[in-house]
Protein backbone atom coordinates (compact mmCIF):
# COMPACT_ATOMS: atom_id res chain seq x y z
CA UNK A 1 0.00 0.00 0.00
CA UNK A 2 1.37 3.36 -0.91
CA UNK A 3 1.37 6.34 1.39
CA UNK A 4 2.53 9.91 1.04
CA UNK A 5 6.08 10.85 1.92
CA UNK A 6 7.80 14.20 1.99
CA UNK A 7 11.28 14.02 0.51
CA UNK A 8 13.79 16.33 2.17
CA UNK A 9 17.54 16.84 2.36
CA UNK A 10 19.22 16.91 5.73
CA UNK A 11 22.98 17.08 6.21
CA UNK A 12 23.52 16.20 2.58
CA UNK A 13 21.37 13.06 2.80
CA UNK A 14 18.03 12.52 1.22
CA UNK A 15 15.37 11.39 3.64
CA UNK A 16 11.69 10.58 3.44
CA UNK A 17 9.21 11.70 6.09
CA UNK A 18 5.74 10.28 6.45
CA UNK A 19 3.36 13.01 5.34
CA UNK A 20 1.14 12.27 8.32
CA UNK A 21 3.87 13.57 10.60
CA UNK A 22 4.18 16.82 8.69
CA UNK A 23 1.85 19.58 9.67
CA UNK A 24 3.38 22.19 7.38
CA UNK A 25 6.59 23.28 5.78
CA UNK A 26 7.83 26.76 6.59
CA UNK A 27 10.69 29.22 6.38
CA UNK A 28 12.02 29.87 9.83
CA UNK A 29 12.75 33.48 10.74
CA UNK A 30 14.40 34.70 13.89
CA UNK A 31 15.29 31.99 16.34
CA UNK A 32 15.29 32.93 20.03
CA UNK A 33 17.76 30.87 21.97
CA UNK A 34 16.81 28.73 24.94
CA UNK A 35 19.85 28.99 27.18
CA UNK A 36 20.97 25.75 28.81
CA UNK A 37 18.54 23.63 26.84
CA UNK A 38 19.98 20.33 25.72
CA UNK A 39 18.89 17.89 23.11
CA UNK A 40 19.74 19.84 19.99
CA UNK A 41 17.28 22.59 20.64
CA UNK A 42 18.16 25.59 18.52
CA UNK A 43 15.59 27.79 20.17
CA UNK A 44 12.10 29.12 19.76
CA UNK A 45 10.51 30.68 16.70
CA UNK A 46 7.20 32.35 16.06
CA UNK A 47 4.92 30.79 13.56
CA UNK A 48 1.93 32.99 13.09
CA UNK A 49 0.46 33.23 16.57
CA UNK A 50 2.18 30.14 17.79
CA UNK A 51 5.57 29.42 19.31
CA UNK A 52 7.45 26.43 17.94
CA UNK A 53 10.51 24.74 19.34
CA UNK A 54 13.22 24.60 16.71
CA UNK A 55 15.26 21.40 16.49
CA UNK A 56 18.70 21.31 14.94
CA UNK A 57 17.98 18.23 12.84
CA UNK A 58 21.55 17.88 11.62
CA UNK A 59 22.92 17.81 15.13
CA UNK A 60 20.10 15.56 16.26
CA UNK A 61 21.21 13.06 13.63
CA UNK A 62 24.76 13.35 14.87
CA UNK A 63 26.06 14.93 11.68
CA UNK A 64 28.40 17.82 11.12
CA UNK A 65 26.69 20.97 10.05
CA UNK A 66 29.62 22.03 7.85
CA UNK A 67 28.63 25.66 8.05
CA UNK A 68 25.20 24.95 6.67
CA UNK A 69 22.51 27.19 8.15
CA UNK A 70 19.20 25.66 7.14
CA UNK A 71 16.35 28.12 6.90
CA UNK A 72 13.50 25.76 6.06
CA UNK A 73 11.74 23.56 8.50
CA UNK A 74 9.20 20.81 8.75
CA UNK A 75 6.58 21.41 11.43
CA UNK A 76 5.48 18.39 13.38
CA UNK A 77 3.40 17.95 16.47
CA UNK A 78 4.46 15.66 19.27
CA UNK A 79 2.49 15.35 22.50
CA UNK A 80 0.71 18.61 21.92
CA UNK A 81 3.86 20.60 21.27
CA UNK A 82 4.89 21.97 17.90
CA UNK A 83 8.42 21.44 16.69
CA UNK A 84 10.21 22.85 13.68
CA UNK A 85 12.85 20.46 12.36
CA UNK A 86 15.38 22.31 10.29
CA UNK A 87 16.13 20.86 6.87
CA UNK A 88 18.43 21.93 4.03
CA UNK A 89 15.93 21.68 1.21
CA UNK A 90 12.63 20.08 0.44
CA UNK A 91 11.71 18.24 -2.72
CA UNK A 92 8.21 17.06 -3.08
CA UNK A 93 5.44 15.03 -1.61
CA UNK A 94 4.77 11.81 -3.43
CA UNK A 95 3.25 8.39 -2.75
CA UNK A 96 5.66 5.57 -2.10
CA UNK A 97 5.51 2.13 -0.67
CA UNK A 98 7.25 1.71 2.67
CA UNK A 99 9.69 -1.18 2.55
CA UNK A 100 11.52 -2.76 5.41
CA UNK A 101 15.16 -1.92 5.85
CA UNK A 102 17.29 -4.05 3.52
CA UNK A 103 19.24 -6.87 5.11
CA UNK A 104 22.67 -6.00 6.37
CA UNK A 105 22.30 -2.25 6.47
CA UNK A 106 23.75 -1.12 9.72
CA UNK A 107 22.58 2.28 10.85
CA UNK A 108 24.24 3.75 13.88
CA UNK A 109 23.39 6.24 16.56
CA UNK A 110 20.58 8.66 15.95
CA UNK A 111 20.03 7.38 12.44
CA UNK A 112 19.26 3.98 13.83
CA UNK A 113 16.78 5.41 16.32
CA UNK A 114 15.07 7.44 13.61
CA UNK A 115 15.21 4.99 10.69
CA UNK A 116 11.90 3.32 9.89
CA UNK A 117 12.48 1.71 6.55
CA UNK A 118 13.06 2.54 2.92
CA UNK A 119 11.21 3.95 -0.05
CA UNK A 120 12.38 3.75 -3.65
CA UNK A 121 12.35 6.80 -5.86
CA UNK A 122 13.31 5.93 -9.45
CA UNK A 123 15.56 3.19 -8.19
CA UNK A 124 17.16 5.40 -5.53
CA UNK A 125 16.63 4.02 -2.02
CA UNK A 126 15.68 6.71 0.45
CA UNK A 127 15.75 6.26 4.21
CA UNK A 128 12.43 6.92 5.95
CA UNK A 129 12.92 8.75 9.23
CA UNK A 130 10.58 9.22 12.12
CA UNK A 131 10.60 12.85 13.23
CA UNK A 132 9.38 11.90 16.69
CA UNK A 133 12.67 10.14 17.32
CA UNK A 134 14.49 13.42 16.71
CA UNK A 135 12.41 15.37 19.16
CA UNK A 136 14.17 15.42 22.50
CA UNK A 137 12.52 15.23 25.84
CA UNK A 138 10.25 12.26 25.35
CA UNK A 139 12.55 9.77 26.97
CA UNK A 140 13.82 12.08 29.60
CA UNK A 141 10.26 12.96 30.51
CA UNK A 142 9.54 9.30 31.05
CA UNK A 143 12.65 8.89 33.09
CA UNK A 144 11.68 11.80 35.27
CA UNK A 145 8.41 10.12 35.90
CA UNK A 146 10.05 6.93 36.96
CA UNK A 147 12.46 8.70 39.24
Amino acid sequence: MEQLFLIAHVAGRTVAIEAEQVESVVDIGTIIEVPRATGHIRGLAALRSRVVTVIDTIAALGMDRNGREPGRAVITRVDGHHYALLVDTLDDVAPFELQPMAQGIALTGAWRAAGRGLVQRDGEPILVIDLTALVPGQNSANLAHVA
Partner: peptide, 12 residues
Protein backbone atom coordinates in the same frame (compact mmCIF):
# COMPACT_ATOMS: atom_id res chain seq x y z
CA UNK B 1 1.82 28.27 27.25
CA UNK B 2 3.75 25.24 28.35
CA UNK B 3 7.11 24.89 26.61
CA UNK B 4 8.35 21.69 24.99
CA UNK B 5 9.48 18.96 27.43
CA UNK B 6 13.13 19.42 26.50
CA UNK B 7 12.86 23.10 27.36
CA UNK B 8 11.06 22.41 30.61
CA UNK B 9 13.67 19.77 31.43
CA UNK B 10 16.22 22.50 32.04
CA UNK B 11 14.22 23.31 35.16
CA UNK B 12 14.79 26.99 34.49
Amino acid sequence: KPAAPAVMATGL
